[in-house]
Amino acid sequence: MFDLTLPQGAAVTFLVLTLPFCIWVALSDIRSMKIRNNAVIGLIAVFLASGAFAFPVSTFAWHLLFGIIALAIGFALNAGGILGAGDAKFIAAATPFIMPQDAVAVIYLLAVILLVTFIAHRVLRAIPGVRNALPHWESWTNPKFPMGLALGPTLSLYFTFAAIG
């Protein structure tokens, strides 16, 4: 499907270690329209602990720099009202895991997942039985879309596609 450059071993390791955080982010965002700092910090900790073993030191350092650049861009987009703060922080925490050569593929993957999750979310929130079953989910009534619902699965599927080669 994609010609990804993330090594398979790193992809499997990253998938196993980040999947709980990606699920947490998606669920937290649809429930409360917030991506928790603890989830973002956990994702960063996973990269710091596992990325140091998955990549050579110079590559690891470049990936950290890319995360810092993503954070600066995210803050600018947040200040402009284009992106939520939690979304910007999650993107910055996820960026170091992504090989720069895979960035375009990840953006395409995000576009597809964003479209699918947006449609699914809007359809489900229009069904009274679903809304009644989960009445306290803030995303049912908020006009904004919970981007964590697309961001978490994008990172996990990137690792999955890289792992299966």
Rank of each mutant, 00 (worst) to 15 (best):
I91C: 13
R131E: 13
A54H: 06
L4K: 03
T95S: 13
A45Q: 08
G81V: 03
P143M: 08
V40D: 02
I127E: 10
V112G: 03
P56F: 07
A163Q: 05
I30S: 01
Q101M: 15
R36V: 01
S58Q: 14
R31A: 06
A61G: 03
A79P: 00
L6C: 06
I119N: 07
L134R: 06
I73T: 02
V130F: 15
F90T: 12
H121C: 09
I69E: 01
V123D: 10
G74W: 02
V57Y: 07
P143Q: 05
T5Q: 12
T160I: 12
V46A: 07
L6I: 04
A150L: 07
L157Q: 07
N142R: 04
F47T: 02
P56H: 10
L134W: 05
W137A: 11
V46I: 14
I41H: 02
R31K: 11
I127R: 01
N142L: 03
A76T: 11
F2T: 09
G84F: 05
T160G: 11
G84C: 08
T141F: 09
A93Q: 07
W137F: 15
A49L: 15
L110R: 02
T18V: 10
W140P: 01
I69V: 15
N37E: 04
F75S: 00
L83H: 11
L109G: 11
A79I: 01
L134G: 08
A39Q: 00
F97D: 10
R122A: 14
P96M: 12
I98M: 12
T95I: 14
G86A: 14
F161S: 04
I69C: 04
A105Q: 06
A26Y: 01
A92H: 09
A26P: 04
